[in-house]
């Protein structure tokens, strides 16, 4: 059996994202492994650089699920994105 590639979830903990709401996404770092086991790898990461493009701070916080960028991320949006990938 081929090993499936893990889904990678990166929660941006740069200052902009943190203040605009990723502070509240830190719980994902605990809850995602509990829910999905080793199919998903989740971590808090330093600034992804997405907020500094033009005025895009207003769309923070950002989360990357593999290469997809989630704007104004919430716990719900991130879980939905993970589910969508797993069910593909």
């Amino acid at each position: 059996m081929m090993m499936e590639k893990k889904i990678s979830v990166k929660v941006c903990l740069g200052t902009t994202c943190f203040v605009m709401g990723s502070a509240n996404l830190q719980e994902l770092i605990d809850t995602v492994p509990a829910k999905y086991g080793d199919k998903v790898e989740v971590s808090g990461v330093p600034c992804l650089g997405l907020c500094s493009i033009d005025w895009e701070f207003s769309k923070a916080p950002y989360v990357k699920v593999d290469d997809d960028v989630i704007k104004e991320a919430t716990v719900e949006k991130v879980l939905k994105a993970i589910d969508a990938k797993l069910n593909k």
């Binding site: 903990l13 740069g14 200052t15 902009t16 203040v19 600034c47 907020c51 500094s52």
Partner: peptide, 17 residues
Amino acid sequence: YEELGAWFIAVGTQVDK
């Protein structure tokens, strides 16, 4: 702290750097 955070965003401070 919301105001301080907003100030950091406005001037582009990365506190962890």
